[in-house]
Write a protein that binds this DNA or RNA. Sequence first.
DNA 1: CTGAAAGCGCTAACAC
DNA 2: GTGTTAGCGCTTTCAG
Lengths: 341, 341
Amino acid sequence: MATIEDVARRAGLSRTTVSRVINEHPYVSIAKKKKVMEAMEELGYVPNSAARSLRNQRTGVIAVLIPRVMNPFFSQLIETLEHAASESFHQLIICQTQYSAKKELMYLNLLKTRQVDGVILTSAENDWSVIEEYLDYGPIVLCNEFEERANVPMIFMNQKEAGYKATKHLIEMGHRKIAYCCGRYRSNVANAREEGFKKALAEAGIAFDEIDAFREAITSEDGIDIFNGIRSRGSNRPTAIFTGSDEVAAGIISEAARCNWNIPRDLAVTGFDNQVITELMNPRITTVEQPVCEMALKTMEVMMERIRLRQFTGREMHKFSMKLIIRESTKMQAELARIPY
Amino acid sequence: MATIEDVARRAGLSRTTVSRVINEHPYVSIAKKKKVMEAMEELGYVPNSAARSLRNQRTGVIAVLIPRVMNPFFSQLIETLEHAASESFHQLIICQTQYSAKKELMYLNLLKTRQVDGVILTSAENDWSVIEEYLDYGPIVLCNEFEERANVPMIFMNQKEAGYKATKHLIEMGHRKIAYCCGRYRSNVANAREEGFKKALAEAGIAFDEIDAFREAITSEDGIDIFNGIRSRGSNRPTAIFTGSDEVAAGIISEAARCNWNIPRDLAVTGFDNQVITELMNPRITTVEQPVCEMALKTMEVMMERIRLRQFTGREMHKFSMKLIIRESTKMQAELARIPY
DNA sequence: CTGAAAGCGCTAACAC
DNA sequence: GTGTTAGCGCTTTCAG
């Protein structure tokens, strides 16, 4: 492994000059610059990043903590984050918490050990008071996550609006008994969504029955179970269901089809995230589209600024709006054709 | 940031002793060890990883290069790789090549700059002669990728067997005109698969018509296009199609349903990877299950060994077998019920 | 068992 | 414009 010393020797110059060339400092004569370049080329020299990190006290790496890469919402987020990071000459390291508070702490430790310059948190598993302590070591930016007490930047979608609009749409389609379904986390995200859901019901003067609440639904299999639960109720069944996940919605629809139910006539279903699967199912799934790219770009922008200014605390909120995409899982094809919504 | 020096001072000992405690060296008296521990605790000391990397000439980080995290096959691979890595006290950094040779090189450079101790390549975009040069800087392990000339460990599934078995199944279902569909990469993986496909045809004395080859299919939209292409052919249509991707298969099936085709009667379809979607579509999709976890574990095992022995070259092949999962997209429900395959 | 000291590769004052 | 030099924080001989 060639070092900067080797390059300097070969070029007949000092380490300093070589370093200046590497870091594109001004005040290096063109002739020497060329000499250095040649020497680097000949030796196949590449700067050692550990040495640079140690010296500069920064690594050029950002950690993104997500529950699971398998979740399409998060993998889409990563795609854009990664792109944005590389534009700013930073690298992304992707860390899966698997919804585990312990793993989350383990990864937050990357900040302490100075292995990363900042952490993007997309779903907080630990209590904020615990996470907060890591702010001594570097910036933390919340993306897709919201935390009332947090004194950091937060980039998130208006979840309340999403819950509200989707539910209102179901009500407009004539439903009065609507089930509610979300993931297993009593997160602020889920809470806001539920608030919106209930607001829509309240406005229409509809009471909510806790029997129609499913709060442990993440996978398509959960969707299958939920459908079977509903089906086995002889009466008092909901006629529509709001879900917080396209996968769950797909599970419901898939199982309903096998039981010869007609969606949306027998049960209207809404999903969340506008994943590929929403267009593959039959019927296609009405869903909430999140502005994932915009949120990712803003997140990285804010992160870069915090790193630059070495300013780790300070609340800053960026709330994004959503879009309801109406498809056949809530609206009969005939209706969709007649009235362009 | 507390350093090892601070800890030493506070404990009234030398840096050396503190270092010995950190690295669990023997020959430290219990009393002093305790003192050190206390000092570390009080100062909230965490070793600086850049300094350690610089000193030790290793980082404890492995890079995994994958085309896209969005692809469920790869995200599943990552899940297991990550688990295995953390068991060996290593971290994984996930790098998306986006199928770009340039990005791949950029990430291979992590090896040169000593930012990682090893690279796992799941899909080589550059010619092997180019990649080979990086072996001077650290171990490269191929996982899911195969390369005739490569002098490194290779962990992969028997793709030929997969192509063969799936196609043979279609032939057994009575098909004589079978279309072939794969991703856009003329990789060794795709080649082996196609070999198996053609072997099955040859054995049954069936000639293959290049009009039935689709070699640009990756997404469900590609599947939709392929289906429409087939449909628009008045005659000379295939009665079955082998695909290299569940997503493509889902696209075909989804569009076929909209056109009121009956799958498998009008067109039998096989997928690849046994993704969640195969069980959600109606009909469910016959597919090839890869032993993803086993492959991931073996990959990490081999990687750790190479790192330990500092032995970067040396061919080593681990070939895994696949499993054909037969569902309704190739076999009428009646048949499935009657004959337990 | 413990400590002094050298040095991993790089950058940035500071001097010239 | 260019070079000398002092560390960044850590581990590891080597000497006691």
